[in-house]
């Protein structure tokens, strides 16, 4: 983990989860598990966020909200689906109002299983998201550099 250069900010959104994963995500950010030691920080503002942690499945009401949140986040961005509901729809898959997992509306990079997902699993997901974010940032930087060269 010595090569971390950036400090991505987390945005947490509760899709239609049962709260179990949400409080585990919050518990991850408190002193006992302390995910912030990996250089991330929790924020409530999508415009400043780099990693989206989404819990719960997508229903007809929140699909627009999730899409909008994703669009508001600046590039590059990473999406991490926490809990089995966000991965596939989980126990509520057969409900009339559930469309499926988070990947029905936005591209998901990392899937964290579990019902409710354990803090250890969520931290693992966050670490992977941080690494992926680092990689994407470098690609993004290289792209911007090349474009600058072409222009000059």
């Amino acid at each position: 983990m010595a090569n971390i250069k950036r400090s991505p900010w987390l945005l947490h959104y509760d899709g239609s989860s049962c709260n179990g994963c949400d409080i585990e995500v919050l518990a991850c950010l408190t002193p006992v598990y302390d995910a912030e030691r990996f250089g991330v920080m929790n924020t409530g503002d999508p415009m400043q966020a780099d990693i989206l942690l989404i819990t719960g499945g997508i229903n007809t009401q929140n699909q627009e909200v999730v899409k909008q949140l994703y669009d508001q986040m600046p590039r590059p961005k990473v999406v991490c689906a926490v809990g089995v509901c966000a991965c596939t729809g989980g126990v509520f898959k057969d409900c009339y109002n559930i469309l499926g997992g988070a990947d029905t509306v936005i591209p998901v990079d990392i899937y964290v299983p579990g019902c409710a997902a354990r803090p250890q699993a969520i931290i693992d997901g966050i670490v992977q998201a941080v690494e992926l974010f680092q990689k994407r940032s470098e690609e993004h930087d290289a792209l911007v550099k090349n474009k600058g060269k072409e222009a000059s």
Binding site: G15, S16, G56, G57, N59, Q61, F92, D94, C95, N97
Partner: peptide, 14 residues
């Protein structure tokens, strides 16, 4: 309300 409405009670049929 309705952002988290899943229709859990309807699962009695399934």
């Amino acid at each position: 309300v309705g952002f988290i409405h899943r229709g859990l009670e309807s699962l009695v049929d399934k």
